[in-house]
Design a binder for these strands. Structure first.
Lengths: 109, 109
DNA sequence: TCGACTATATCACGTCGTGACATAAAGTGA
DNA sequence: TCACTTTATGTCACGACGTGATATAGTCGA
């Protein structure tokens, strides 16, 4: 899968996919991602098991992440170079959304 | 529909829903929203007709937006007070995502 | 030993955005 | 006037997604 198709498929990214990839700046396993996301969103975002393992399998298939270590009860993943490209593009988009949110914020008061 | 259920249903908001509501700080009709979103995203986001009219109908049913004027070839909508509450909550969430994006940005270089 | 936590996986369900298709009025230039 | 483009709304099937229930099982402290 080339980078162009990947960008089209993954950007805009869902909030879930974004936080999963954000967590994989360091190698982590599924359950560790759930806890990490809960932490950096101050308990707001609690990922369902179906969401995490389903997303991880899809991302691995697409080459966005790769298996870092396969222990007996843990499968540890890390982000690939292609995954990093995706995140760079997604962060550009998030900045645009944020800019527009700030620009129009007054209209909702 | 009370505000708690509305928040649960609409936050996190999809990018599409966000930009549609953002456009309705001023009264606009469906096609006008499509053009406005294209404009403020520098051509990046081109909403499909199914997306716009489908979303507008759903939002009207839920009391997020209301009909401002019903001309012969245009149905003009505007955001309700409930819709504004939704957007305030969504903007808080966007700020959190943006904060985390900035915090982890170095990990993708 | 018993419950809580860790850890992974599957499945049905409802929701969402997309793009094709359809329809039609209004504007534009030849 | 004729053809083309733009404006404008609507429906539908499709694929993708997140959720939460269900299942299974190892670990750890009380």
């Amino acid at each position: 899968m080339d980078i162009q198709k990947m960008l089209k498929k993954y950007v805009p990214m869902t909030e879930t996919a974004f936080y999963i990839l954000l967590s994989l700046t360091e190698p982590r396993h599924g359950y560790g991602i759930v806890k990490h996301v809960e932490e950096i969103t101050a308990g707001r975002l609690k990922l369902g098991s179906g969401t995490v393992y389903g997303t991880l399998m899809k991302m691995q298939k697409d080459g966005v992440i790769t298996v870092f270590a396969d222990e007996q009860r843990k499968t540890v993943y890390e982000i690939t170079e292609a995954g990093k490209e995706l995140m760079k593009a997604e962060i550009v988009r998030i900045k645009e959304v944020h800019r527009n949110a700030i620009a129009f914020e007054e209209g909702f008061k």
